[in-house]
Design a protein around this nucleic acid. Structure first.
Lengths: 83, 83, 83, 83
DNA sequence: CACTGGAAAATGCCGC
DNA sequence: GCGGCATTTTCCAGTG
């Protein structure tokens, strides 16, 4: 878009405002996240391991891709039309 | 499992819960962010440039100027100043 | 397993092998690339700007000019032309 | 680095050359990769599934992080000093 | 306080 | 040409 009208300029300003507002929110929540991590550290937990646990829990769903599904993928790969 | 460990487990669970809740929030807000970007795109704005604008606004003018200057120097050294 | 499938399996295996070999090559060259970047860094060059230069050289001057113009327009609309 | 000497300029030119050379190599190998994918497609394989197979094989090593190791991580997380 | 590794984001690519 | 996915780059916390 070539901004020729002041309307377009105002619209751009609005989008930028909204986006920066959302970025601020993200930053804020991330700060809270870090605070909790620090708090956990204060309780004696190893932050690195903590993050690892979170990661593992996030990965879990992906491991539905386990064994059977992998096998299915291979079988599908072999189920070609005229090979 | 000893009582101590059991306590620790409960505490760990709590921290994990809080952290995952915060992660969810971040994810949610980021989704909103992307939606606004898409909306702006629908209004005819160039999303890539939009992101560039946000980045520029986040940078301190000083930093930005410095980066630009280095770039100019490199381009000059390569006889590319008009690129 | 039918003969057809067995054939397909062998063929699949071959394709996978070739593809993985090529993936390895790419990975290897990328490693070399990163090493050169590091070397340049060691010589005092700013790696981020270095990457920027490569990107600029890859772009057709026309594209680049266009992008810059859009950016200038946006910044102007936001009264940020001096950023 | 502020490039003041022609030596530095020459050095920069050399780094850029080397990096672009490596980028070309990568591009070339990637082209070969795509050609093999196309060839496989011509043999009746579904390219999407093919890529999926490659991905799965790449992930496999990461799944050493399975069960026992995950358990170990949790146990470690609970093995705090003074909780 | 620079380096390193890992998470998040942006870019670019492939298929539709 | 666009949307989704994979790669690449950037950012940031942790560490010596």
């Amino acid at each position: 878009m070539t901004i020729t009208t002041s309307d377009a300029a105002a619209q751009l300003q609005q989008y930028i405002d909204r986006l920066e507002r959302l970025e601020d929110e993200i930053k804020e929540v991330r700060t809270q996240f870090n605070e909790v991590i620090l708090e956990a550290k204060g309780s004696g937990f190893d932050t690195k391991v903590l993050r690892q646990v979170l990661k593992i829990r996030k990965m879990k769903p992906h491991e539905r891709l386990e064994q059977e599904e992998i096998l299915a993928t291979y079988l599908h790969a072999l189920d070609m039309e005229d090979a």
